[in-house]
Write a protein that binds this DNA or RNA. Structure first.
Lengths: 221, 221
DNA sequence: CAATACCTGTGAAACAATTCACAACATGAC
DNA sequence: GTCATGTTGTGAATTGTTTCACAGGTATTG
């Protein structure tokens, strides 16, 4: 029920693809892009597995989930697989996301994500500091918080990224949910209360670092 | 085998506490701090569960893992539980971490983590840009990459945080592992190759955002 | 045209994580 | 003291996820 990820709904979701499989599909696509850039045409499940630190059987199961088939002799067609994962993950229409909190972390994410996915873009940033608003940050227009509801509706934004300090995170989450957002990525070390049906992915850097430090200590040799 | 977390070793680990439980214990501690600051003395499993978005049974199981007992009438003693989780997560001695890559993301993490845990500190940063090195960034000394091995050994650093661009991540991971680090938190969208026994926690923001967008779309109502 | 080698797709088994359900117990009320 | 209440700790059941193992293919070789 956490992990700087794992993610979850408020309540029992119905029988859809599990978050773990969705995460791995996203990973596979990234790896496939790499392979494509190296000029590869086909890939075997065991190759993808090696790159993803998984097993061949798991790769095959995951691809089964999106109904993609390979050939026993050639493996999977990379181009087709990329498209198939794309259809599954991205859906038919482009999706828009908003980022709230244009501090160091927010800027890092804007920079990093810029132009990375054609079907998923961060189209708006918000901040409460007037020095940051009403201009573009890393090519992304930054609005004052007051405009959030309006912009979210106008731009058809369905996913929000929260990079504000802990004290403001719940308030921001409320604003986003009330404006109609249905997925959140929360970097604040706060457990957000959200309406049922909103998917929340928490990333708490302290937690992740503690975990890494704990397991680092378990192998002192 | 991923999730912007989940984390894993290279190979089969022996019978220790699972990463999920470790992550939740870290979360519980954070929540307990909040309760303490509100003046609470005791807490019931179902209260902690509500705050952590879990079930009471799970909280009790997790606390069982560290052998902490509560009283049927008062619940768990918060002070004692915080200390008990501390002993478990932090171990006897202070642990040190290093951050490599003092860009926006690195700075955000340094700021965010500063002074947050007495037993776990980021004691060194590294960057290849000479304009950033040989001075303090957010109170943390920043060294050139060339000094990495020396500083890691001198400062007894066992955990590394990688916030460099993807192209350099593997190189940095090699340096860190060779210097003796046994736990990594990797923010670069690259699957690191590491020696067996090194624990790696990957956080890929693109993956997390894709996941959130996917599940946001699954509840269009 | 066998025979070989290696792969995919998938039912079934194994394993891991979570939840159920209840005995054992403290406390407070009377 | 005894009853009623509400909680913990945990074996057992359940649910979810991963791996095994093999039938069914397809190319390649001689």
């Amino acid at each position: 029920m956490t992990d700087a990820a794992g993610g979850g709904w408020q309540k029992g979701n119905s029988a859809v693809t599990s978050p773990k499989t969705v995460g791995r599909l996203s990973l596979y696509r990234r790896l496939l892009y790499t392979l494509q850039s190296e000029g590869e045409q086909n890939v075997f499940s065991h190759q993808l597995a090696a790159m993803a630190r998984g097993t061949a059987a798991q790769v095959r199961r995951d691809l089964m989930a999106i109904g993609f088939s390979g050939s026993p002799s050639k493996g999977y067609d990379i181009q087709g697989l990329v498209e198939s994962i794309g259809e599954f993950l991205d859906g038919p229409t482009r999706q828009n996301a908003a980022l709230v909190g244009a501090g160091n972390l927010g800027k890092a994410i804007l920079t990093y994500f810029k132009g990375r996915r054609p079907k998923l873009a961060i189209v708006a940033a918000f901040d409460s500091d007037p020095r940051k608003t009403n201009r573009a940050i890393r090519g992304c227009p930054c609005y004052p918080i007051e405009d959030l509801a309006r912009v979210v509706r106008n731009e058809d934004i369905c996913t929000g990224i929260i990079t504000v300090p802990a004290t403001q995170a719940q308030h921001v989450a409320d604003l986003l949910c009330r404006a109609g957002v249905r997925g959140l990525v929360n970097f604040a070390p706060v457990r957000l209360g959200t309406p049922a049906g909103v998917y929340v992915e928490d990333i708490d850097v302290t937690m992740v670092l503690e975990k890494a430090a704990y397991f680092a200590r378990q192998t002192p040799e």
